[in-house]
Design a protein around this nucleic acid. Structure first.
Length: 504
RNA sequence: GGCGCGGUAGCUCAGUUGGUUAGAGCAGUGGAAUCAUAAUCCACGUGUCGGGGGUUCAAAUCCCUCCCGCGCUACCA
């Protein structure tokens, strides 16, 4: 496992909108996995991106009275601050307006054109002149525009097409042979149906749009934003600009995305990669969506959750914890501050925070704050904790990060129960040797729990680490350090303030 | 319309390839304990597993059908 190259990505976020809980959710998930992979010894390339071309940006810039690139610059600066605030450890942040990306897109477009997988044709569709846009035909009723309800006309427009249809069988074969290509599995059937039902070639250029990457050999066309944006994954991985890097990091292990853009990532993008002769990412994981207090999130309702505000009000780690604790990773869920406060009080303050606090207090009280010499017998508690740790690692490996977190919290529960059943306060009077064993077990269990929890709550983990009195930095720890017995007897603990105070 | 995903305890949800009296957390009630942020631990659930039908020795789990909620339906992300 050690030394594996591990590339993972978030989507390229469109810069016409301010980041909300949905973007944060996806990026934090990627961050958790990236942190775990580094912990597991992998050489990680964690890529996030912004998608900056297209009609929407052009329009937004116009109404703001600035150039599109100026608008994008502004949003990008903001996004970077948000990611910093949320403790996102990305290795690369690529913008689709960057030179390295533009050149890659151009060369891909050229290559596919030469190969014949991109060809010039006519796009025919229902066009709404006032909206200046084509409408999705299946949504058109009575020849009226679904957006503005005005009359549509059927028009033809010159366009370049990507031969998506050519890759139908190859895609189906790939799905068949790689059961973990699409995760979670509940999203699979629909995609297979779509592909089986037949694929139409995809229009990949626009003449009405100005803000984008021009087709290299036909400048009146601009490359369709999706075709452009998807390529960010390989331009950031080094394709066309750093071959050595690219050969190490591609194929990506994981594309993390929201379910709304699943189709682009399991049908269109793989077909593009086939056309380029590149390998497909190992896994595309489509996570669910958040509602807020039971309602759909929307600007008009004014209930859009601002991740920075949540981090300010409750703490970054608490927010990160909640997102993956409340809802199984992959399905839809509901966000509410009320639920967040309940989890804070019960699980973080009462269970985890108090576990650390009571254990350190006993250590101070009975052993002057020094970790005692453990017994050499392998007890039931230790066995249980080791098994739980192994399960946690398995879940991480499968990207079932909510299950990983849930397993960690089970360990916390086990430790609290162990205190009750062994009653150290009695042992202090009756059985000094046994007391040593129990307290060593507890403090060692906390150390391991902290390592496993660190990808979710990096700052909290550091704080616990300090309180445990450990000299080495937690960031330097590896997966080998979760094996039992790593804590040296004699270590002087350093009890501090409660991790999760309850005066909220 | 087509395709897909859901409908399990008051609430939020787990339930792998069908198999002992259907589980967890939260909330509620009672109790124990005192190391601790009055935190912790234990005990307590007559749930039509959306409705109906079927397959089977056996179904929340497979098949059919109906009802309800949600999403997608391809190129203004």
């Amino acid at each position: 496992m050690a030394g594996n190259k591990f590339c993972l990505t978030t989507p390229a976020y469109y810069v016409n909108d301010v980041l909300h809980i949905g973007h944060a959710y996806c990026t934090i998930a990627a961050d958790i996995i990236a942190r775990f992979r580094r912990f597991a010894g992998d050489d990680v390339l964690f890529i996030t991106a912004t998608d900056e071309h297209g009609q929407k940006i052009e329009d937004a810039a116009k109404s703001a009275g600035i150039e599109p690139i100026a608008l994008a610059d502004r949003i990008v600066a903001h996004d970077k601050k948000v990611w910093e605030r949320l403790n996102i450890s990305y290795d690369d942040f690529i913008r689709t307006t960057e030179e390295r990306h533009v050149r890659t897109v151009e060369s891909v477009f050229n290559a596919l054109y030469e190969k014949g997988d991109i060809y010039k044709g006519m796009y025919e569709g229902m066009y709404c002149t006032p909206c200046e846009s084509f409408c999705v035909e299946s949504q058109v009723k009575d020849n009226k525009c679904p957006d503005c309800a005005r009359e549509l006309e059927r028009i033809k427009e010159e366009s370049y097409f990507f031969k998506l249809s050519k890759y139908r069988e190859k895609l189906l074969k790939h799905y068949e042979e790689n059961p973990d290509f699409m995760k979670p599995h509940s999203r699979k059937a629909e995609m297979i149906n779509i592909v089986e039902g037949g694929l139409k070639d995809l229009s990949v250029s626009r003449t009405a749009v100005k803000w984008g990457i021009p087709v290299p050999f036909d400048k009146k066309h601009v490359i369709y934003v999706w075709f452009d944006a998807l390529i960010n994954y390989i331009s950031a991985a080094g394709y066309g600009n750093d071959d050595k890097k690219f050969s190490g990091f591609w194929p990506a292990e994981l594309h993390l995305i929201g379910k709304e853009i699943y189709k682009f990532h399991v049908i269109i993008w793989p077909a593009m990669l086939f056309a380029m002769g590149l390998e497909l990412p190992r896994t595309v994981f489509g996570h669910g969506w958040w509602t807020v207090d039971g309602e759909k999130m929307s600007k008009s309702k004014g209930n859009v959750v601002d991740p920075v505000k949540m981090a300010d009000d409750y703490g970054v780690d608490v927010f990160r914890y909640f997102l993956f604790r409340e809802v199984p990773f992959g399905v839809d869920g509901d966000f509410s501050e009320k639920a967040l406060v309940v989890r804070y009080n019960t699980e973080l303050a009462n269970d985890l925070g108090n576990l650390l606090n009571r254990t350190l207090t006993m250590l101070e009280k009975y052993f002057e704050g020094k970790v005692p010499q453990p017994g050499d017998s392998k007890d039931e508690f230790r066995d249980m904790m080791e098994k739980s740790g192994a399960r946690t690692v398995e879940y991480y490996n499968k990207y079932e990060i909510s299950s990983a977190l849930s397993e960690i919290m089970k360990s916390v529960g086990n430790a609290n129960r162990y205190i009750e059943s062994s009653a150290p306060w009695k042992l202090a009077k009756e059985n000094r040797e046994k007391l040593k064993e129990v307290l060593y077990d507890l403090i060692e269990a906390i150390r391991i729990i902290t390592l496993l929890l660190a990808p979710f709550m990096p700052q909290t983990a550091e704080k616990i680490w300090e309180q445990l009195g450990l000299e080495s930095k937690i960031s330097g720890m590896t997966i080998r350090d979760i094996s039992w017995g790593g804590l040296k007897p004699g270590t002087k603990v350093n009890k501090g303030l409660p991790l999760f105070p309850k005066d909220k």
